[in-house]
C-alpha cells in the first residue's frame, strides 16, 4: 500500500466498533467517532442476549478488543455535524469547529428506542408499574425486579409492537427484535421470580431468526409463558394499584380484561436522531421508514448513494447484534473494494 488510507467511522456501537476493527486489521487507519462519553452503544445497557442468553458483557469485551486495535483512534464526546466531499476525499465537520479528513466514511449511527410515552394510552410515565423492555434489562442487571412499592410482581405482562407496526405513531415497519426479546425477557422473569405468571400480548409472533422458534417453544414448555393474541387498546390502573389491560383475545373471539402487577412495553427501534440530523445536513437519503436508504437492497445494502460513504448496522434497518456485526464486516469489505477500484 503506497499510502495508508484513512476511514472515519461515525458511531461506536456494535456496528462502528466491528467495522473499525475489521478495517484496522486490514492495515487501514481508522478514526472512530462517538457522540457519547463511552463506546458500546445500546449493547452495554442490555443484560442477557437472545437466543443463547449470553451476558452482553462478553459482546462488549469482544467489540472493545476489535476497536482497540492500534490503527484505531477513538474520539468520544464528538458530534458530527456535516460531511463534505471534495475531489474524492472527505472533510467531516464536528462539534467545536473541528474537522477530520478521511478517504471514506462508514456511518454507523444506529437506532434510538421508541419513546414509549408517545403511545400515551399505554400509560408509560403515567402509571408506576409500567416499564419498557430497556428498563427491565436494567432491573435484571441489578437483580431487583420490584414494583414501585417494593413488592415482588407476581403477574407480569409483556406488550409487543410498542412503536412498531403502528401507523398511529408513524412506524409501519416491524422492529424484528421485540418478539424474541419478549420471549427471552419473559423466561428471565420466571427465572428471577419462579412463581410469577407471565403473559405476552402479541399481534404475530415473528420468530424468523436462528433459534428463535426453539426459544419460543422452550418458553412455553419449560417456563409456562402464556401467549395471548391481541393488541392492547389501553391500560388503566384500578384502586388496588393494579394495572388493567384490555385486549381482544382474537383467538377466543372475545374481549379480555386482566389485572397485572407489572407491564413491560416492548419498545421498537427508530432511526436515531443523530442519524436523521446527519442525513439532513449531508444530503444522505432516507427511506419511508426514516432509516438510511441503501443504494440497492440486494447488492448494495452497505452503500449510500454518495460514493465513499457506507452504512453499517441498525442505521439502515432494525437489526439484531449478530446481523449488525455481519453487516459491519460487509461494510468494511465494501470500503476495501472501493479503494481497490480507485487504484485500478
Amino acid at each position: 500500500m503506497p499510502e495508508k488510507k484513512h476511514i472515519a467511522v461515525i458511531g461506536a456501537g456494535a456496528a462502528g466498533m466491528e467495522a473499525a476493527g475489521q478495517l484496522a486489521r486490514s492495515g487501514y487507519l481508522v478514526t472512530l467517532l462517538e457522540k457519547d462519553g463511552q463506546t458500546g452503544g445500546h449493547v452495554k445497557d442490555w443484560y442477557h442476549l437472545f437466543p443463547d442468553r449470553r451476558d452482553s458483557k462478553e459482546v462488549i469485551e469482544y467489540l472493545k478488543k476489535q476497536a482497540g486495535h492500534k490503527n484505531v483512534t477513538l474520539r468520544t464526546g464528538i458530534t458530527v455535524q456535516r460531511l463534505e466531499k471534495n475531489n474524492g476525499s472527505f472533510a467531516i465537520k464536528t462539534s467545536g469547529d473541528g474537522e477530520i479528513k478521511s478517504d471514506a466514511i462508514i456511518v454507523a449511527t444506529g437506532f434510538d428506542l421508541f419513546r414509549s410515552e408517545r403511545k400515551e394510552e399505554y400509560g408509560y410515565g403515567i402509571y408506576d408499574n409500567i416499564i419498557t423492555s430497556a428498563d427491565l434489562e436494567t432491573l435484571f442487571r441489578k437483580n431487583e425486579i420490584r414494583r414501585h412499592n417494593g413488592e415482588i410482581p407476581r403477574k407480569v405482562g409483556f406488550i409487543h409492537c410498542v412503536g412498531s407496526r403502528d401507523e398511529k405513531v408513524g412506524n409501519v415497519y416491524c422492529s424484528k427484535l421485540c418478539c424474541i426479546t419478549a420471549v427471552k425477557q419473559a423466561m428471565e422473569v420466571k427465572k428471577h421470580i419462579p412463581d410469577a405468571r407471565v403473559f405476552c400480548f402479541y399481534m404475530d409472533m415473528r420468530m424468523g431468526g436462528a433459534m428463535y422458534e426453539e426459544l419460543y417453544k422452550e418458553s412455553q414448555e419449560k417456563y409456562g409463558i402464556n401467549y395471548i393474541r391481541g393488541k392492547l387498546s389501553e391500560v388503566s390502573e384500578n384502586i388496588e394499584n393494579k394495572l388493567v389491560v384490555k385486549v381482544e383475545d382474537t383467538l377466543a373471539g372475545r374481549p379480555l380484561k386482566m389485572e397485572l402487577d407489572m407491564l413491560v412495553l416492548m419498545a421498537g427501534m427508530e432511526m436515531s436522531k443523530s442519524g436523521l440530523d446527519l442525513a439532513r445536513s449531508s444530503g444522505l437519503q432516507t427511506g419511508e421508514n426514516r432509516f438510511f436508504a441503501p443504494a440497492d437492497h440486494h447488492f448494495g445494502s452497505n452503500k449510500s448513494k454518495t460514493d465513499g460513504v457506507f452504512y453499517a448496522g441498525a442505521c439502515t434497518a432494525p437489526m439484531n447484534i449478530t446481523d449488525t456485526i455481519s453487516h459491519a464486516r460487509a461494510a468494511a469489505a465494501d470500503v476495501i473494494d472501493y479503494f481497490r477500484n480507485q487504484e485500478s
Binding site: 392492547l232 387498546s233 384490555k246 381482544e248 382474537t250 374481549p255
Partner: peptide
C-alpha cells in the same frame, strides 16, 4: 386489517354484547 383485535378491545358495544 391484520386482525389484531385492537378495535374490539376498545369497543363499547363489544364490551356489553357479542360484537367484534
Amino acid at each position: 386489517c391484520i386482525e389484531c383485535g385492537c378495535c374490539t378491545a376498545t369497543c363499547t358495544t363489544g364490551n356489553f354484547t357479542r360484537f367484534s
